[in-house]
Write a protein that binds this DNA or RNA. Structure first.
Lengths: 127, 127
DNA sequence: CCAAGTGTATTGTTGTATTGATACACATGG
DNA sequence: CCATGTGTATCAATACAACAATACACTTGG
């Protein structure tokens, strides 16, 4: 994996370390990061995105605590061996559930009918 | 409007005052709060949700700065007179756009096909 | 007039989150 | 062996959010 594959928005509402953890969670669930694959070093990621190495380290540490990554002493962090298989579609859907619920709540507060919302999302998903 | 209509999650990632402002924005855009309608007092909202009155005041102040509310001295806050008409569907859709984009990005990272995502959202919107 | 209701400015405190700078322990690989 | 690469513990610096307790200016309604 290359450091450039991580999307980081320094001015986003949620902190950088969480952006990283959540992206790792999804990339691993989908199999874009495969078991045993070595991640870019904290300094590499930090240098590329002009952020502090400790911020990356914190993200890696949380991902390890979550069981996503494991540390290879002296080599770096790798996708955990327990993540052998791509998660099922329903398992991956579960990772979107809360976001979908929040979206539905907002659409409801806006009194928007389902159709235009679904149409817009379909367009965004279809590229 | 009744204080119980506001949804407040004290443990949510974004601060209480912003939750309030954003909800007001949507409720006004959809016409669920109509021009001139009086809002519950800061003490009323604060008491109902067990939060600090100043937190509510801060939210009201920001909503006023945004042109959503106007203050009626001695009476409280009311939906601004300039908000005479319900916003068009496309204007309300615009308030969902960034959230839709983020959702699409996450679905992509999860390598989820469009169909199950749209189906789940349709279910959530249809109640 | 005046008690009771508005919102708000003020000051201070508390707790937490986020990022950063530095130094360290450790394993690797020539 | 040891330079070089890992990750990270530690401490510090901010910034932010919420709360608390007042006090104040204002309007309403009796």
């Amino acid at each position: 994996m290359d450091a450039s594959l991580l999307t980081i928005q320094p001015n986003a509402p949620d902190p950088i370390y969480r952006q990283i953890v959540e992206q790792l969670r999804r990339l691993i669930a989908s199999g874009q990061l495969t078991s045993g694959e070595l991640l870019p070093s904290v300094r590499e990621v930090a240098g590329f995105h002009a952020i502090n190495p400790m911020t990356v380290s914190r993200a890696y540490g949380m991902a390890e605590a979550e069981g996503l990554l494991e540390r290879l002493r002296g080599k770096g962090m790798a996708v955990a061996a327990t993540r052998r298989t791509v998660q099922s579609e329903s398992q991956r859907m579960a990772l979107l559930e809360s976001q979908l619920q929040e979206l539905a709540r907002h659409a409801n507060e806006l009194e928007l009918p389902a159709e235009p919302v679904l149409r817009r999302l379909a367009k965004l998903l279809g590229d």
